[in-house]
Simulated assay, not measured.
Amino acid sequence: MNVEDFDFDLPEELIAQTPLQDRTASRLLVLDRKKNERADRTFKEIINELKAGDCLVLNDSRVLPARLYGTKEETGAQIEVLLLKQEQGHVWETLVKPAKRVKKGTVIRFGDGRLQATCIGETDHGGRMLEMEFKGIFHEVLEELGEMPLPPYIKETLSDQERYQTVYSKHSGSAAAPTAGLHFTTELLNMLKDKGVQIAFVTLHVGLGTFRPVSVDKIEEHKMHAEFYQMSEQTADLLNEVRKQNGRIIAVGTTSARTLETIMSQHGTYKECSGWTSIFIYPGYEFKGIDGLLTNFHLPKSTLMMLVSAFAGKKFMMDAYAHAIKERYRFFSFGDAMLIV
């Protein structure tokens, strides 16, 4: 299958640069796979699309302020570091700019030396392995010195850093937000609960590998980066009960979908577990863990576009995207949403 099959023309002005003041004020494109129908709604109207017995599965990962600006100890040169994944101890896989200035043995200092990083190696993809030295608790140091790593297609600065976090974010570890969840407020979630919609949580720490461009021509040759996931016993029990009662399990975001599909593929049931997943879902994949998907609008030729095409059918999805572009929906992280059932 060719990567080019998932390309489309997206006007740059449709890329949302800032979040709406009201999280729930975004638009919602509702897609019914069985009826082959679509409907334009507002996000608040999702309450009319869900019913008692349904279960929303939310990814409660929290974005790390993972972008750091420091100086090279030897020369004082400015170095930008993006934390991707914590390895053993305080060693992190990172992206650095300019990479050519950071060799094995290079020391980078941040915040008057409160944090220091030593390069101990390079990765296959041009990244750097950095070993961190600091005083106190690492996440507290990071909260003080780091910045939110907004995607490169967002050019505007974010005045309120919490707008790139979901209202239910809990476990720090992501390099990017699980953006489908940005549309929810606590009030809307409570209204859904009052209607009888169940709310369950999983954790998948989003790595930038999810968003990296596909650099091969054939989809089958693309390799996904591994991301850490976790499901609690409470969530597993709830999801198994929802299935038993013939309720719909609706993943909020592709990260939740990939977590559920990983667990069902490995165990054939929902169960308490954790591990690393590099699952790559594209057309031809048979879904085992979800009955619906709430997601934002994705980049052309991205692995996320392939995932939603696998779930809804490629032609149906490409037609839906053409409709969204015609109707001036807002795209990507701070953009509008679609509900596929």
Rank of each mutant, 00 (worst) to 15 (best):
N2Y: 12
N2R: 15
E4N: 09
F6A: 03
F8H: 05
L10R: 09
I15F: 05
A25W: 08
L28G: 13
L29A: 01
R33H: 08
K34A: 14
K34V: 12
N36G: 15
R38N: 03
N48Y: 12
E49N: 03
G53Q: 07
C55F: 07
N59Q: 09
V63G: 01
L64D: 00
A66F: 03
R67M: 09
L68T: 00
L68A: 06
L68I: 06
G70Q: 09
G76M: 13
Q86H: 11
E87Y: 04
E87V: 08
E87Q: 15
H90V: 09
V96S: 09
K103C: 08
K104H: 13
G105S: 11
T106I: 12
D112C: 07
Q116I: 15
E122D: 15
R128Q: 12
L130H: 12
F138P: 08
E144M: 06
E147T: 12
P149R: 05
L150C: 05
P152W: 12
K155N: 11
S159E: 15
S159K: 13
S169W: 00
S172C: 07
G173H: 01
S174Q: 07
A175D: 04
A176F: 07
P178N: 05
T186I: 09
N190A: 12
K193I: 02
V197Y: 02
Q198M: 13
I199V: 14
F201R: 09
F201I: 01
L204G: 00
V206M: 07
G209W: 04
T210R: 03
E220F: 10
K223Q: 15
Q230E: 15
S232C: 08
Q234A: 15
T235G: 03
A236C: 10
A236I: 10
L238Y: 08
N240H: 10
R243T: 09
V252C: 13
T254K: 00
S256N: 06
L260E: 10
T262Y: 07
M264W: 06
M264T: 12
T269F: 03
S274N: 14
S278Y: 02
I281T: 00
Y282S: 10
G284M: 03
Y285M: 04
Y285N: 05
Y285D: 02
E286S: 15
G289C: 08
L294G: 03
L299V: 06
T303I: 09
L307F: 11
V308F: 11
V308I: 15
S309R: 04
F311H: 05
M318K: 08
A320G: 09
H323G: 05
R328A: 12
R330Y: 01
R330H: 06
F331K: 05
F332A: 01
A337I: 00
A337Y: 00
A337H: 00
V341L: 14
